Computed example of a mutant assay.
Amino acid sequence: MLTLAWAKTKAFWKQEDGLGMLEMILIIAVIIIIALLFRKELLRIVERLLNKVDKKSDEVFD
């Protein structure tokens, strides 16, 4: 009985099935939907980061 459980555990561990195409498409769709819902916030964050980078680069190069 123990050897059967051990064999099934080994078989499960060696199983290398990848993600299917449908799962990949669904994941990408969810990421796109989230990005569209929060686009204003994302743009605001990116603009703040770029402004900080611009100020720091001006300090370094002056």
Rank of each mutant, 00 (worst) to 15 (best):
M1R: 04
M1I: 04
L2D: 04
L2W: 02
T3N: 08
T3K: 05
T3W: 04
L4M: 04
L4G: 02
A5F: 05
W6E: 15
K8L: 10
K10L: 15
K10C: 14
K10D: 12
F12N: 12
F12P: 00
F12H: 08
F12M: 06
F12I: 07
W13E: 09
W13C: 05
W13T: 12
Q15C: 06
Q15P: 00
Q15D: 14
E16W: 09
E16G: 14
E16V: 13
E16P: 02
G18N: 12
G18I: 01
L19G: 03
L19W: 01
G20K: 03
G20M: 01
M21E: 14
L22W: 04
L22F: 03
L22R: 04
M24I: 15
M24S: 10
I25D: 00
L26H: 02
I27G: 09
I27Y: 04
I27R: 15
I28T: 11
I28E: 03
A29D: 01
A29G: 01
V30I: 11
V30H: 05
I31C: 14
I31Y: 08
I31K: 07
I31P: 00
I32A: 09
I32V: 13
I32E: 00
I33Q: 04
I33Y: 04
I33V: 15
I34W: 06
A35C: 05
A35T: 01
L36N: 02
L36T: 03
L37P: 00
F38T: 02
F38H: 00
F38G: 00
R39D: 05
K40W: 09
E41L: 07
L42S: 07
L42R: 06
L42T: 06
L43S: 11
L43M: 10
R44W: 06
R44S: 11
R44Q: 05
I45N: 07
I45Y: 10
V46D: 12
V46W: 11
E47T: 13
L49W: 13
L49F: 15
L49C: 13
L49M: 15
N51T: 12
N51Y: 05
K52H: 14
K52N: 15
V53T: 05
V53H: 01
V53C: 02
D54M: 06
K55L: 08
K55F: 08
K56G: 02
K56Y: 09
K56C: 02
S57Q: 06
S57I: 07
S57Y: 04
D58Q: 13
D58H: 08
D58I: 14
E59G: 05
E59Y: 10
V60G: 04
V60R: 14
F61A: 10
F61K: 13
F61D: 13
D62N: 14
